[in-house]
Design a protein around this nucleic acid. Sequence first.
DNA 1: ACAAAAGTGTTAATAATACACCCATGT
DNA 2: ACATGGGTGTATTATTAACACTTTTGT
Lengths: 271, 271
Amino acid sequence: MAMGNIAERRMQPPQVGVSVVILALGPEDADADAGDAHSGTKLWIPLVRRVRQPYLDCWALPGGGLRADRSLEQCAYRALETTTDLHPDYLEQLYTFGGPGRSRGGLPMISIVYWAMIGHAAAGDFTDGDNVRWFPEDALPRLAFDHRRIIDYALWRMRNKIEYSDIATRLVGETFTLRQLRRVYEAVSGEPIDAANFRRRMLASGQLEDTGDKLREGRHRPAAVYRYTPQRQRHDIPFEPDDGGETDAPDHGERSPLEEAMAVLMPSALP
Amino acid sequence: MAMGNIAERRMQPPQVGVSVVILALGPEDADADAGDAHSGTKLWIPLVRRVRQPYLDCWALPGGGLRADRSLEQCAYRALETTTDLHPDYLEQLYTFGGPGRSRGGLPMISIVYWAMIGHAAAGDFTDGDNVRWFPEDALPRLAFDHRRIIDYALWRMRNKIEYSDIATRLVGETFTLRQLRRVYEAVSGEPIDAANFRRRMLASGQLEDTGDKLREGRHRPAAVYRYTPQRQRHDIPFEPDDGGETDAPDHGERSPLEEAMAVLMPSALP
DNA sequence: ACAAAAGTGTTAATAATACACCCATGT
DNA sequence: ACATGGGTGTATTATTAACACTTTTGT
C-alpha cells in the first residue's frame, strides 16, 4: 500500500482561520407593495468580495488569520474590523468547521466561526464599500467555499437561541422601543407577533428598564424607550469560556486601546 | 522596536488538537448514609493520566491530533476510542478553546472540544484501566492545562441544554424506564424531581414510545420500558454543520467499517 | 375626524406544580 | 401485611394566546 507521503500529508498541521457572520436588522422594508403578508424587516449580512482565486469575485464571510498573542475572540473582532470596518456590539463563538470537505488541494482548512451582531444599524449604516456589501438573508449571492452553509447554520442557530436567551437585545441599540425589539423577533422568526402579548412577555421578564424617554417613529403616538438590564439568570455562565487562565507565553507586546475596550465588551451570554 | 522574530512567532500556524469530554450517568449511589437530601446519582467523567511533562501524572481529557482525511467529529471519535477504548453513543462539538492563555512556550495551542455521552453505562462499565479512570463530576482530581475549565463549561452547557433539547436521552440506553430518565435530569440539575409530573411531561412530548416490556429494578413493581422516538421539532436543524459539501482533496484512502458506522451514528440534535 | 400605532383589559386555553392516593410487586 | 416505587387523579397556579378596546399622536 502506498502509505508513505499520503500519511504524511494527512498529519501535517492544518491551516486555521477565523470567520465572522455578522447580523444586523435591515431597514423597515417599505416595499409592502407585494401582497406578502409577512414581508416585514429582515436580517442583513455584510459580505466581502473575493479578489483572488478560488471563487474570484464571489462573496465570502469576512475573516482572517490567528495570532498567538490574541484570544480567538479578539482575532475575530480584528478580522471583522479590518475587512469591513464594522464594529460589532456582540461577538460569540458559533462553530468550528473542518473536515476533508474543506480541504484546498489537500491542505486541511479549519475555520473557527464567530457570529457578531450590530445593534445601532439604522438605515444609513448599510452603505456599501467597494468590496463590502450588505445582503438580506433571503437574497444572498453565490458564496465562496462552504460559506453558504455556515450562514445557514448561523441563521438556524439564531432562530433557536432567540427563544431562550437575550440575543435579540443585541440587534437593537442600547436603548430601544418595544416595537424595535419586536421587529427583531419578527425578522428572526419570519412571522408577525402580537404586539400586546409581546409587550407583556418582555416586561414580565423584569429585564427591561423604562428610561422615561419617548421616541416618535411615525406620525403616531410615541413609544416608551427601554434599556436592557440583565438580571442573574437561573443558569448563568459563571465565567468566559474563551481565553482566561494562566499563560506561560512571555511575549504580550503592546495592547491597543481598542483591545482594552474589547475586554469590557464581551458579555456572559447564554449558550 | 523588536518586532522581528516576535511578529513571526505570532503568525506561525497554531497547533490544533481535539479533546473530548465524555459524560455518563454514575451508579445508583447507595451511600445515602450521609443526611444529604439530594445525594442521588451523579454524572461521571473518564480522564486519562498524563505520562509526560507538563502536568506529568495529572489527569486530562482524552484527545488527539487531526487528520486531513477525517471530519473533526471522526477525529474526536477516534481520539476517544484510542485513548479510552470507549465508544460514545452521541458526539457533538462543544467549543473551541484558544488564545494566549493556552500557549505552551509560545506555541499557540487550539483545542476543538467535543462532548460525548454514553448511555449504556450500567454499573459495570466504570471499570478503570491503568491510565483511564472515571471520576464523579463533583470530585475531580487536579487537571492538566485548562481542562478543568473545559469540563466546567461542558457541565454548565449540559445544565442549560437539557431544558430545551433531548440530550437527556443520550445518557440512558436505547430503551429505558422513566425512572432512569428522571435520574439523568436529577443528576444534571442536582435537584430531586417530582416523579408524577415528570412522567406526564415526558409522555406529553409525544416522543416516548412504550415498548411493551417491563423492567424490574428493585424489590417492587416493575416499570414500563420506553424508547425515544424523535419527532420533527419546530426548528430542527436541516443539515449537519460538520463536514459535508464537495471536496477537492483527492486522497480519501481506505475507510474502516467503524467509520462507516459513524456516519449513521450522528444525529440531528438541537443546539 | 381619521389613521396608525401605543398601550390596557378580558377571557380562554394550556402548561407547570404540589400532593393525595391507588396499584403491583417481593419479602 | 408492609415497604417501595410505579402510576393516576385532582385542584391550584402560572404562562400563553387571541382579540376587543382605549389612548395618544400627526395630519
